[in-house]
Computed example of a mutant assay.
Amino acid sequence: MKDILHQNKEFAGIDYTNQAISGREFDGCTFKNCDFSNTDLSNNSFLECLFEHCNLSNIKLNGAKLQDVTFSHCKIMGVDFSGCHDFLLSVEFTNCSLDYAFFGRKNFKKTKFTGCSIKEANFTDTDLTEAKFADCDLLRTVFQNTNLEKADFYSAYNYTLDPEVNRIKKAKFSTQGALGLLAKYDISIKQ
């Protein structure tokens, strides 16, 4: 991976653990079964890339550009997305483990989270307008000063969020899930 620009390449089964890779551009690349755990991917550009069955736990993304990047069946635990470059930031997560991730102070409008474990993650000061959490476990995830307008929580579960400190206008909740909006009141509701 010594080249600066990588276009339409596939990287499969490679162990990048504990390495520092920076100053690279990846355009239309696919990463399959790669281990990036504890790797510093700061200051790289990923455009229309796909990560499948990769371990990206504890990666560093300071100054990284993620544009139209899809993560499928990946382990992305403990990752701090707040250092990512803001310009055209767009990602999608399918069947990923995003436990302990930090998404704070970023624009994740229309981001799709499908079948993901997002336990004890943090979305403080995040814009999640029109985001979709389909069949996602949000146990002990923090939503604080978060814009959740038009966000879809219909099939999400185990979430609690305070409507008084988050913007939830026109957000979508199931009847069962809406109980997570009342958690702070420590009340008992019989069904």
Rank of each mutant, 00 (worst) to 15 (best):
N8Q: 14
K9C: 15
F11N: 13
A12G: 07
A12L: 11
G13I: 10
I14M: 15
D15M: 09
Y16L: 11
Y16S: 09
T17E: 10
Q19T: 14
Q19Y: 03
Q19R: 15
A20E: 15
S22F: 07
E25P: 02
F26H: 05
D27P: 01
C29P: 02
T30C: 07
K32F: 10
K32E: 11
C34M: 05
C34E: 01
D35E: 06
F36R: 13
F36P: 11
S37C: 14
S37L: 04
S37Q: 14
N38M: 08
N38E: 07
T39V: 06
D40F: 13
L41D: 02
S42W: 11
S42L: 06
N43F: 15
N44R: 10
N44W: 09
N44H: 11
S45G: 08
F46H: 02
F46N: 05
E48F: 08
E48N: 14
E48G: 06
F51T: 10
E52N: 10
H53Y: 14
H53Q: 12
C54H: 08
L56K: 04
S57Q: 09
S57D: 14
N58C: 10
I59H: 04
K60C: 11
K60S: 14
K60G: 10
L61Y: 02
N62Q: 09
G63Q: 08
K65Q: 03
K65A: 08
Q67W: 07
Q67R: 09
D68R: 10
V69P: 01
V69Q: 06
V69G: 04
T70R: 14
S72R: 13
H73Y: 03
H73L: 12
H73V: 08
C74G: 05
C74K: 06
K75I: 09
I76Y: 04
I76P: 00
M77E: 15
M77V: 14
G78K: 01
V79Q: 10
F81M: 08
F81S: 03
F81C: 03
S82C: 03
G83C: 07
C84R: 02
F87D: 12
L88M: 05
L88P: 00
L89W: 00
L89E: 00
V91A: 03
E92H: 02
E92C: 08
E92V: 03
E92Q: 14
E92W: 00
F93I: 03
F93R: 00
F93K: 00
C96S: 11
C96H: 04
D99I: 05
D99K: 11
D99S: 15
F102Y: 04
F102K: 05
N107Y: 00
F108H: 02
F108S: 01
F108W: 08
F108M: 08
K109G: 00
K109E: 00
K110G: 00
T111G: 00
K112N: 15
K112F: 01
